[in-house]
Simulated scan of single mutants.
Amino acid sequence: MGVEIHPTAIVGKGAELADGVSIGPFCVIGPRARIGADTKLRSHVVIDGATEIGARNDIWPFAVLGGPPQHTAYKGEDTRLVIGDDNLIREHATMNLGTVHGGGVTKVGSNGLYMIESHVGHDCLVGDNVILTKQATLGGHCLIGDYVIVGGLAAVHQFCRVGRYAFIGGLAAVVKDVIPYGSVWGNHAHLEGLNLVGLKRRGFSRESINTLRAAYRLLFADEGTFQERLEGTIESYSDSAEVMEIIDFIRADASRPLCLPEREV
Rank of each mutant, 00 (worst) to 15 (best):
Y165R: 07
P180F: 01
D177T: 04
H157E: 13
I149R: 07
I149M: 15
C160K: 08
Q158T: 12
V150M: 13
K176V: 00
G152A: 14
V150Y: 10
G170Q: 00
G163A: 13
F167C: 12
G145S: 07
I179C: 00
A154W: 09
L153H: 12
A154I: 02
I179H: 04
Y147C: 13
H141Q: 02
A172P: 01
I179M: 10
I149G: 07
P180G: 00
V148C: 02
F159C: 07
I149Y: 06
L171H: 15
D146Y: 03
A166K: 02
C142I: 06
G163M: 00
G163K: 03
A154P: 03
L143R: 15
R164P: 06
Y147I: 07
V175C: 14
P180S: 00
V150K: 13
F167I: 09
A166R: 04
I149C: 15
L171G: 14
Y181E: 07
A166S: 14
I149A: 12
H157W: 13
H157M: 12
V174W: 02
F167M: 15
V175N: 15
D177S: 01
A155C: 15
Y181P: 02
F159D: 12
G169N: 11
R161S: 15
P180Q: 03
F167H: 11
H141K: 08
G152M: 12
Y147Q: 13
C160A: 15
L153G: 05
G163N: 09
A173P: 02
I144V: 13
F159M: 10
Y165A: 01
G145T: 05
Q158I: 09
V150N: 10
A155Q: 13
G169A: 11
G152Y: 13
G170M: 01
Y181I: 01
G163Q: 04
L171V: 14
Y147G: 05
G169E: 11
A173M: 12
Y147F: 15
I179L: 01
G163Y: 07
Q158A: 07
V174G: 07
I168A: 07
G151Q: 03
A173I: 10
L143E: 14
C142N: 08
D146N: 14
H141W: 04
V150W: 08
L171P: 05
C160T: 13
F167T: 09
G145M: 07
V175W: 05
L153I: 10
V178G: 05
D177R: 04
C160E: 05
Y165K: 07
D146Q: 06
A172E: 04
G169V: 08
V148K: 08
L171S: 15
L153A: 14
A154Y: 00
A172F: 05
G169S: 12
Y181K: 00
G145Q: 03
G152P: 14
L153F: 14
Q158R: 04
V156D: 12
L143G: 11
V148A: 06
V174L: 05
A173N: 12
C142H: 06
A155Y: 11
I144S: 04
I179E: 01
H157P: 12
V178W: 06
G170L: 02
I168N: 11
R164S: 10
V175T: 15
P180K: 04
I144T: 03
V178H: 03
A172L: 00
L143T: 14
G169M: 12
V156R: 11
I168G: 02
G145H: 08
G163D: 09
A166D: 08
C142S: 08
L171R: 13
P180D: 00
G145F: 04
H157N: 15
G152F: 11
I149D: 07
V156C: 09
